[in-house]
Write a protein that binds this DNA or RNA. Structure first.
Lengths: 112, 112
DNA sequence: GGATATACCTAATTTTGTTAGGTACACCCT
DNA sequence: AGGGTGTACCTAACAAAATTAGGTATATCC
């Protein structure tokens, strides 16, 4: 079950996760993979091998903070944006929007 | 001169180049970098270290064919899409459009 | 003669994702 | 009791692709 046929999402995972955490306030890893799968109707399946290391990197950079919680002998590691994370999210989303406009522009080109 | 602050274009270079070759019919490497820079007003600067290896890969896969031409002691290696390349372009653009819609969907989420 | 632009190239490194595991517990079913 | 599935975390080996930073060579302009 690959993320996608020809991984276009490379480089976009970070802003996607940041944005999700901004709208949901607080999420754990597995929840992120399932939520994205639902929202995108299976189009984007974030692999755990990509997600967990990313979360760890973002935490190490001080953009996320983690809190472990137990329920029914189940561990959940909840992540939320730090102040720096919120700022980073803002700029990341801005860049992503510019990126999307640029992409659309490039794709809809007709020969002059 | 990096391509971008935080390279979002990572997995999208191939479809972009294919699309450009479809609309322009015939281009050489340096021309591609300059054209993209102009079209995107500097937003996307394809580095040569990314482009040339990509062109070689696409040629090796039989998606592009190359033709070297000389003018004023200047070498230019013109690339154009093969039949297989045209088909690949079609599907790549389709995937890219699905990708863009998914991205937009993810970014424009509001908390339910 | 030197800077800038054109025009190709590659090698080392880094980043990021894929693939493919592993642990552990809960729940359901037979 | 045992097995399958789902939840929930993790990591290591590998692969792909871009970045960084070079190199060569010629033309043009000052």
């Amino acid at each position: 079950m690959p993320m996608n046929k020809s991984s276009l999402y490379k480089g976009c995972l970070e802003p996607i996760v940041l944005q999700l955490l901004q709208t949901h306030r607080r999420m754990y890893g597995y929840e992120i993979t399932q939520t994205v799968k639902e929202i995108t109707k299976g189009e984007l399946q974030i692999t755990e091998g990509a997600l967990y290391p990313l979360l760890h990197r973002l935490e190490a950079k001080g953009l996320l903070e983690a809190e472990i919680q137990l329920a029914d002998n189940r561990m959940r590691k909840y992540y939320s944006l730090t102040k720096a994370g919120k700022e980073k999210t803002k700029s990341a989303i801005g860049e992503l929007q510019v990126f999307m406009q640029t992409l659309e522009h490039l794709i809809n080109l007709k020969l002059a």
